[in-house]
Design a protein around this nucleic acid. Structure first.
Length: 286
RNA sequence: GCCGCGGUAGCUCAGUGGUAGAGCGCUUCUCUGAAAAAGAAGAAGUCGUGAGUUCAAUUCUCACCCGCGGCA
C-alpha cells in the first residue's frame, strides 16, 4: 500500500510542560479529533497530580484514550502500548474521526511512527532476577556468546539493556541483534513538535511543580505507596523527590532528555503555536 | 582586639613539596517488551591575595583580605 493510501494520524509531541494537552485539545476540537495519549505514566490510575494528567475541564469534552487504563501494580510497557494504541487509533479512524497521538514518551511514539516490531519475547521475571545478580562484565560475556554481532551496538555498561538482550536471545534462541526490526508504515503521519525555549520550559515547569505541591502531590504519593508499595511505576519524577526544588530540577533534566530523543527524528515539524499547527494539519488533510 | 577553624570546579568538599580530584550540577550523546527508566562521553579550577624558604609551592613560613565560631 502506498503511504498516501494509509489512514491519517496526527502526532503532537514536545517536552514536558510545553503545552501539548492544551494545543492538542484545541486541534482536536477544530478537526473533529480524539486524543490518544502516548504517556508512560498517565496510563496508571491514581497517578494524577504528579503526571499532570489532564482534568475533565482541560479535556473539554474531547475523548482521551489510554489514560487511566491500569492499576499501578500492573505491568505496562512500550510493546503493550503499541498494541493498544494501534487498536485505539484504528477504532477512531473507523468512526471517521481524526486521531491525535499526543505525549512526551518518545519511545512510545516511535513504536507507532516507525512501527517498531519488538522481538516477541515477554519479560521473564525469573531470568531477570537471576541475571540481575551478575556484574555487567559477566553479562557482557554471556551476551557475547549468544549474540557475537550484537556486542557492537549494545552499551556494555548498561545492565538493563544487557539483560534484555540476553533474555531475548536465550528464550527465542535467536540473536537479539537480528530481531530489531521496523515494519512498514502503519499510518500516514504528520508529526508536530512543540518548540519552546529553555527559558520558557523552565518557567512553565517551575510553575507547574509549585501547583502540584499545592494540589497535594505529597498526599497522592503517600496514598499510592501505602496502597501498592514501591511499585516500579512510582520510579517517576514527582513521586520520589522531597522538595519542589528537587522535583523541578529533575523535571528540567527530563525535558532535556526528551528533546535529545526528539531531535533524532527528522520528520518532526516544529511549531511555535496553535496557528502554525493548524496550518500544517490543514495541508495534511487535503 | 584576641583565640580557633576555614577560603581548591557553578555547589558541597577530598588531597598532595613536582601546577589537582570526587559527588552533585552543566554540555553532548545512546535507546527495539521498565523509557518520567537505564546507560555513556565531555567541558570546566592562575588551589583567597602578596611576599619568603626551596631546584620546585596549591601544599611549608609570614603578612594581609574574606567567612564562621568563641572570648573580650
Amino acid at each position: 500500500m502506498r503511504e498516501n493510501m494509509l489512514k491519517k494520524l496526527v502526532v503532537v509531541l514536545g517536552p514536558t510542560a510545553s503545552g501539548k494537552t492544551k494545543m492538542a485539545v484545541k486541534l482536536a476540537k477544530k478537526f473533529n479529533g480524539e486524543i490518544v495519549s502516548a504517556d508512560s505514566r498517565q496510563v496508571y490510575k491514581g497517578m494524577d497530580i504528579g503526571t499532570a494528567k489532564p482534568t475533565k475541564k482541560e479535556r473539554q469534552g474531547i475523548r482521551h484514550h489510554l489514560i487511566d487504563i491500569i492499576k499501578p501494580n500492573k505491568e505496562f510497557n512500550a510493546a503493550i502500548f503499541k498494541k493498544k494504541a494501534i487498536g485505539t487509533i484504528k477504532n477512531i479512524q473507523r468512526r471517521k474521526r481524526l486521531p491525535f497521538l499526543v505525549g512526551g514518551t518518545g519511545l512510545y511514539i516511535q513504536t507507532i511512527v516507525d512501527n517498531i516490531e519488538f522481538p516477541k519475547v515477554a519479560p521473564n521475571k525469573k531470568l531477570r532476577e537471576k541475571l540481575e545478580q551478575k556484574s555487567v562484565k559477566e553479562l557482557f560475556r554471556i551476551y557475547k556468546k549468544l549474540d557475537p554481532k550484537g556486542i557492537k551496538e549494545i552499551e556494555k555498561d548498561n545492565k538493563r539493556r544487557l539483560i534484555r538482550a540476553i533474555e531475548v536471545s536465550k528464550i527465542s534462541k535467536k540473536p537479539f541483534s537480528e530481531q530489531k526490526r521496523k515494519g512498514k508504515p502503519l499510518f500516514n503521519i504528520l508529526e508536530i513538535g512543540i518548540k519552546k525555549s529553555k527559558e520558557e520550559i523552565k518557567k512553565s515547569v517551575e510553575k507547574r511543580i509549585k501547583k502540584m505541591f499545592k494540589m497535594g502531590l505529597e498526599n497522592e504519593v503517600k496514598g499510592l505507596v501505602k496502597k501498592y508499595g514501591r511499585v516500579p511505576c512510582l520510579q517517576t519524577i514527582g513521586y520520589q523527590e522531597s522538595s519542589p526544588e528537587e522535583t523541578s530540577l529533575h523535571t528540567l533534566q527530563f525535558a532535556k532528555r526528551q528533546m535529545t530523543w526528539f531531535k533524532r527524528s527528522k520528520k518532526i515539524q516544529w511549531v511555535k503555536n496553535y496557528q502554525q499547527a493548524k496550518k500544517l494539519i490543514r495541508q495534511f488533510l487535503l
